[in-house]
Design a protein around this nucleic acid. Sequence first.
DNA 1: ATACAAGTACTGCCATACAAGTACGCAAGT
DNA 2: ACTTGCGTACTTGTATGGCAGTACTTGTAT
Lengths: 238, 238
Amino acid sequence: MTFVGSSRLLPTAPRNARGQALDIIRQKIITLELAPGSQLSENELAGQLGLSRTPVRESLILLAEEQLVSVVPQVGTLVSPIVEAEIATSQFVRESLELAALSEAVYMVDAAQLAGLNALIAEQRVADERDDTELFFALDEQFHFALMNISQHGSAWRTVSQAKAHLDRARRLSLSLTQQMSTLIDQHQSIVDAVARGDSGAATDALRRHLRKVFDDIALIRAARPELFAPATPTRRR
Amino acid sequence: MTFVGSSRLLPTAPRNARGQALDIIRQKIITLELAPGSQLSENELAGQLGLSRTPVRESLILLAEEQLVSVVPQVGTLVSPIVEAEIATSQFVRESLELAALSEAVYMVDAAQLAGLNALIAEQRVADERDDTELFFALDEQFHFALMNISQHGSAWRTVSQAKAHLDRARRLSLSLTQQMSTLIDQHQSIVDAVARGDSGAATDALRRHLRKVFDDIALIRAARPELFAPATPTRRR
DNA sequence: ATACAAGTACTGCCATACAAGTACGCAAGT
DNA sequence: ACTTGCGTACTTGTATGGCAGTACTTGTAT
């Protein structure tokens, strides 16, 4: 597993044990390697990661704040099930913030930033050709961050990224992500083109269409396989 | 100090030591009882609160994630200075989310919700007459939460509340909060009136004006006393 | 008086031990 | 067969000790 494009903003690797544990566990939850509803154990995770309970426990507390796990005292820690309401909230947060940032960004973008965005799109085309969804997810994260960074509100990315994590996790339920990559990349291009033209309305429209597509794809998954959402009974470990 | 209207949504008191420590420390930071830039110590806080270092440390980790403190390994934990960029980001997040939620809320509000909002405004008038700023802060928090809760996005309040915490802390630098309460309450009334009329544009305009006033007040403080923002040297404890 | 270096007293980080509480299985009694 | 009660094996919560690294202090030499 590569941690390129992890949610942690600074690419500098987390030098302490807690940072390592947080990144690894978080990534495993988002990629569904740790199934929604499954039970975790501080002790077991500590053993697997070769750490003591302390940094693992601190990571789980942070993940609970992010709503990715829920800790029940004296009972256990559960990977949060994928709940429609949570997805809708994440979509609302992400959409509101990205759109508001982009509407300002149109008036302050420079040539270097546009070139950077186009370069990311080119890399995404490569990822598409290789059917490398992991690479695409990482580049997608970079693209949306770069877009938001044009305005002065790049430091709000932390908030957006947390919302995006819930949406990405739900997206991974889809079996055929590879078929949608080219559409998503085209939408990326439409956004950048509108920004380059200085057309604020077209840019926000294009971004809204893009984000709504992601959300609608999740709705399609839910329609096809409702059992994947909000599993009623938590999965016990043994 | 009363914890009515603390940031924790559920009024159910935190039953474990970490929850207590988190609420107390957080409140002391927001109310400036713990000065921006001042140094904290896990040991010292644990002693003051009558707890061990563990729950205190876990609280500080959560506060660091919220950007209210910054932890420097082997050096110390500092209460975050009030930095203009951080304020601007918080304003951006709060404004974007509250406005987006309100624009939807106008079409789904019912009579009971309007009555609840007006009741909160009435309470705020009382707080104004008594010059009780602490009560007003609590009621203000309740009002904005109730407003956001009309739409289906009440669960995004957690995010808004974290941004609002930074703005509230900066607001407390102002010496004359009592003189502004009546204006703020009038603006609350304008928002509710517009929502009651079903006038989406007027409602969002009124809310934007309201939130911008809060932001502009902070800018005035900064203009008058720039030394309160981003203190260059951290305050050592002895 | 100044520069420098060793000492010392802190810091947060991590590991570990113990405490409190819950869930489940199994056995005894009805 | 079913219910009930207890024991056991887990769970997270909290306390504490030791470690490594930083900053300030103090003594010494220049």
